[in-house]
Design a protein around this nucleic acid. Structure first.
Lengths: 195, 195
DNA sequence: CCTCAAAACTAATTCTATTAGTTTATGATA
DNA sequence: TATCATAAACTAATAGAATTAGTTTTGAGG
């Protein structure tokens, strides 16, 4: 009954921490309320709904992820930047895999706020691609190629879909990114010749 | 109250149909029971739990998907087989996207039955890769690369993550698969020279 | 025709999220 | 300092989820 300085922000922060600690599936309004020492219904004085909590948590997670990616590619170019970005992406997805799930579950929930998030996610990728001398259209295509591979790999890895074969996952990932690097370098050369 | 010839199989079949028609998120034991004209509790005479239903539905979906892939690559080789496989994968994920979600949500639920499913999913992929003259280890790596790309692309596409840019998605996908084709051909040549 | 198991039922439990209505605490104002 | 309004806590209730226990009914085989 005594009041603590709760706010929308602190509730979201608590949600982030709870999801990271106990996992996405164990998360509920009841658990969140318990972690804040209030009753479940009291949460609604600070936030509209569970969906809004997920949206806010996802937004926060996107920021964290993009920050990490930006730091990873700082001062780097082309293949060096590409591998740093790819490794940062995978590392984030591994170290914060519960948050990563929230990000990925987010996309279907369509609203204006999440449009911004989508832009943020593309940002570091486009920055890396800008070093390869592609025209705008090619950049869009390769942005999709790179995102697909990074997400697809981490999703399978996290789900355990790769564990049946006794081959080094780091090496698999390196091959995937090297494949894209080769493709990018070839595409860049073509665009250069065709200009 | 009059009995119909319900069985575990017919319940799973009804679940598949309901999920395809109304969507994964609208599915529930209550909805399934309603579609079968029985009470919710009566479902438990035929199947153990919701989780088991999802597992069975996922298994059935994997079969369908693998069938479609197998038909797609029949009589084809190398790049031709690769593109057919990739297109079949994406087409299935689009046309049966609710079932595809079940497949993907499945993997975390770990048990023996799903190990088999994982094997089935890899089957057509390995068949295509076998035409590139890779050694076993390389085949494992490239199997992961291809799966990652196909899943990552369809996941993003289905989630709407690609719609912000006015670029043709078919062409993006073609570029992604061509990139892998080039990588495969180069890797195959290397393995040939090193033997 | 009778019996028995399988398959339906009802009713209850325990978990969700959410809303309505009430009390209490606290900061601002008279 | 006393009052007052608001924000933040509360309790209680609703509606829906999965699941279980216990009961009735159905229908096929002996």
């Amino acid at each position: 009954m005594p009041r603590q300085g709760l706010s929308r922000e602190s509730v979201v922060k608590a949600a982030v921490e709870l999801i990271e600690k106990k996992g996405y599936s164990a998360f509920s309004m009841a658990e969140l309320a318990k972690s804040l020492n209030i009753k479940t219904a009291s949460l609604y004085n600070h936030i509209e709904s569970l969906d809004v909590i997920y949206a806010e948590v996802g937004l926060s997670a996107v920021s964290q992820m993009v920050d990490m990616e930006m730091r990873a590619i700082e001062g780097k170019e082309r293949d060096s930047a590409l591998f740093s970005l790819a490794n940062a992406y995978r590392t984030f997805a591994k170290e914060h895999n519960e948050l990563y799930r929230v990000i990925m579950s987010l996309q279907k929930t369509k609203n204006e706020v999440l449009e911004r998030a989508a832009g943020q996610i593309a940002e570091p990728i486009l920055q890396v691609l800008s070093g390869y001398g592609l025209d705008t259209l090619q950049q869009m295509h390769w942005q999709r190629v790179l995102r697909s591979t990074m997400h697809g790999f981490t999703a399978h890895e996290e789900a355990g879909g790769f564990s049946h074969f006794p081959a080094d996952k780091n090496e698999s990932y390196r091959i995937a990114i090297q494949c894209i690097a080769d493709g990018l370098n070839a595409a860049g050369k073509e665009d250069y010749e065709n200009r």
